[in-house]
Design a protein around this nucleic acid. Structure first.
Length: 673
DNA sequence: TGGGGTGATATTTTT
DNA sequence: TATCACCCCA
């Protein structure tokens, strides 16, 4: 195999196997290439079987990309059994084999965060009241506990105030409820295997034998639980390579613990560190700006990106009168630039801090007839029609899944209303069984009027028939018939305002079916209905749609967060203002460093040109607010900036503002060191 | 059962 | 200011 295409550092990272390895891979430094080459190296030169290697990523997209690139460099016969998966899929695979040890039955469901919110709501409601804000906080807290491996009993000990006590008691009942539903949540996919491994040496041994080498991508995004899983699977061995960049850690607010990078040095004293600093993406000036900015953050590992792509144009800084003006400027910059360079619309990206900022840009783009593609928004699996069909599959796979039952039972309408369901619920509780189970109990007739009873019976009988068909005969035709038999298309046509949206939703349903078919075809033989449903739950079809849309020539609109891992020739970052970037809330919480990393991520997306913009006045909550340029603009190398716009020469007012920003920044630095 | 009026609310999001 | 739940009424 040829390692010639790699630079010396990359080559070293691929070949190093003597101790655990941390690869500090700067933006655009070819980290995916290192991981894929290393897998090939392990297989071809070190005699490790592909089936004994586990490579872990965070998103489906990253794992798909990695699989694809490996198939390009490694023979199919040699890559057989290679496990490239997300953390959650790895966890699911473990649980599929070991579910009995944690009190689950086969066919368990995976609850998404909406299902979880529903369960918590029910629990609090039984307590006598809840507002949606509280449910949110409870959900967040429980998730945080799981991410830090704290079980309900331990949570009891950690309570500091009344709210913590409530959380702990809800946590306990929440776990019980999930078990009763034969369900787990996303966090459990990692939490439960870790707990099991900690308790049961034998099972851990088995999995350690199965996995000889682990590679972890985007290591700075791991949480405590994920790190523990890696640590357990690696055990005392040296067979670990993690790749990460502390400067691109932008998900701490979601439970990621970038400290895990430093923790490695403690847990593995023999840890070897290799830095990848050559950037293959951007012009020198962009990297200089990025380096200068991020130097304002404290670092455990120093790192400076460089490239041999030439220095490039100055970074434009647009100063605008107001937000409308800003949008207008950005669009006209894109248009005139495109005209000059004869580039494509898809070469441009507009990045922003918050989703709402896209609206005004969208408006300007529409006015100029510029096609655009908006990333984000509702994910495919959050669409009601997709959730409906998925719920049908879930109840078919796991009859204890009450959440799925409730969603499905009266959609489309079967005249099974709230009062029927309440009585059914009471009865199920009395009999200590699931809602579906309760429908089969003889005693139910005592509690329900005939009409309601009949409706329910008809439904569950139909459901068991179709389930049986799916399990026994041709899976896909049973599913397709199911959609037909419930009259879903007619239901959409009745409930949607216009036929157009009904049609669109039906298209989504069909797309879902196509996907189920694909997953079914690719799944190992012997995969059950529930296996298919589990994998579907962990998937995001939207990603694929994105790829499709990108083929038509569109300007890209996305949040800074969503931009991580992507690159564009020409990048605009709008709203470079105090209270936006850095965001107000982060300022209050003292999280300036993460905001700075966010700006860093945005800047390093640009290959050739970078334009920043800010406004003097912005409408916020309907009120006109005076704005101040972001401190991050002041932290950039001023000689490399080309400032343009309304009253571009610095007036006394602005001088003063900048002075204040600088002072604040100094204080910030002092406070941190 | 659905639509319209009302009031609260306003980062970032993957699995 | 704009949106989105949610609740109430027809």
């Amino acid at each position: 195999m040829s390692l010639e295409q790699l630079n010396p550092r990359q080559k070293a990272a691929v070949k190093y196997i003597d101790s655990p390895l941390l690869v500090l891979a700067g933006a655009g430094s070819g980290k995916t290439r290192v991981i894929t080459q290393k897998i090939a190296y392990l297989v071809e030169e070190c005699g490790v079987k592909a089936g004994n290697i586990a490579a872990v990523t965070f998103t489906n997209k990253a794992s798909r990309e990695m699989k694809e690139r490996i198939s390009q460099i490694l023979d199919k016969s040699k890559s057989r059994g290679l496990k490239v998966s997300t953390f959650h899929t790895l966890g699911l695979n473990i649980l599929r084999k070991e579910y009995k040890h944690i009190g689950l039955k086969s066919g368990f469901s995976i609850f998404d965060s909406q299902d979880v919110a529903g369960v918590i709501k029910d629990i609090v409601l039984a307590d006598g009241g809840a507002d949606s804000d509280q449910v949110q906080q409870l959900q967040w807290k429980i998730s945080a506990w799981k991410n830090n491996l704290i079980d309900p009993a331990q949570a009891d000990l950690y309570t500091e105030d009344k709210f913590d006590e409530l959380c702990a008691s809800v946590y306990k009942r929440y776990q019980q409820t999930l078990r009763a539903y034969n369900a787990i949540d996303f966090d459990d996919l990692i939490y439960e295997p870790v707990k099991l491994f900690q308790k049961n040496r034998e099972i851990l041994d088995k999995w350690q034998t199965r996995i000889h080498y682990m590679l972890v991508d985007e290591y700075q995004d791991t949480n405590g639980c994920q790190y523990e899983l890696v640590k357990l699977l690696v055990g005392g061995r040296t067979s670990l390579t993690v790749v990460g960049d502390d400067d691109q850690s932008i998900y701490a607010w979601r439970g990621a613990n970038p400290e895990n990078l430093n923790q490695l040095k403690v847990d593995y004293p023999s840890l070897h560190v290799i830095k990848l600093e050559q950037n293959y993406r951007s012009m020198g000036r962009i990297l200089k700006a990025a380096n200068t900015l991020i130097e304002n953050n404290p670092h455990v590992f120093e790192k400076a990106l460089w490239s041999d792509k030439g220095f490039g144009d100055p970074i434009k800084v647009l100063r605008c009168k107001n937000d409308e003006h800003e949008a207008e400027r950005v669009v006209s910059e894109i248009l005139s630039h495109k005209f000059q360079k004869r580039s494509n619309f898809s070469d441009y990206a507009v990045l922003y801090r918050g989703n709402h900022q896209s609206r005004i840009i969208e408006k300007a783009l529409r006015e100029h007839r510029v096609p655009y593609y908006l990333t984000g928004g509702q994910s495919f699996f959050e669409k009601a029609e997709v959730k409906d069909i998925m719920a049908y599959l879930r109840i078919m796979a796991n009859s204890d899944d009450d959440a799925a039952f409730l969603r499905v039972v009266n959609t489309p309408k079967r005249e099974i209303g709230p009062s029927t369901l309440e009585k059914l619920g009471n009865y199920a509780q009395q009999r200590k069984c699931s809602l579906y189970g309760a429908c089969h109990e003889i005693g139910l007739s005592q509690h329900l009027p005939d009409r309601a009873l009949n409706n329910l019976k008809t439904f569950v009988e139909w459901l068991s028939r179709i389930t049986e068909r799916a399990e026994r005969g041709d899976f896909m035709s049973a599913i397709r018939d199911m959609v037909k038999e419930i009259g879903y298309q007619g239901y959409l046509e009745d409930t949607c305002k216009d036929l157009n949206t009904a049609e669109k939703r039906m298209e989504n349903v069909n797309e879902l079916l196509t996907w189920i078919e694909r997953v079914y075809d690719q799944a190992e033989s012997g995969s059950s209905l529930s296996d298919i449903v589990s994998y579907m739950t962990l998937m995001n079809i939207l990603e694929r749609q994105e790829d499709n849309e990108n083929e038509s020539d569109c300007v890209n609109l996305l949040t800074l967060h969503a931009s991580k891992g992507l690159e564009f020739p020409y990048v605009f970052i709008i709203g470079m203002e105090e209270e936006i970037l850095p965001h107000r809330v982060s300022m209050d919480e003292g999280n300036i460093e993460e905001e700075r990393r966010l700006a860093y991520v945005g800047i390093t997306r640009a290959q050739q040109n970078l334009t920043l913009s800010y406004t003097r006045i912005r409408k916020r909550y309907g009120e006109k607010m005076e704005c101040e340029v972001s401190r991050f603009v002041d932290e950039l190398p001023q000689d490399d900036l080309q400032r343009e716009g309304a009253g571009e020469t610095a007036n006394p007012e602005e001088q003063k503002q900048r002075g204040q920003a600088h002072l604040a920044n100094l204080k910030d630095l002092l406070g941190n060191s």
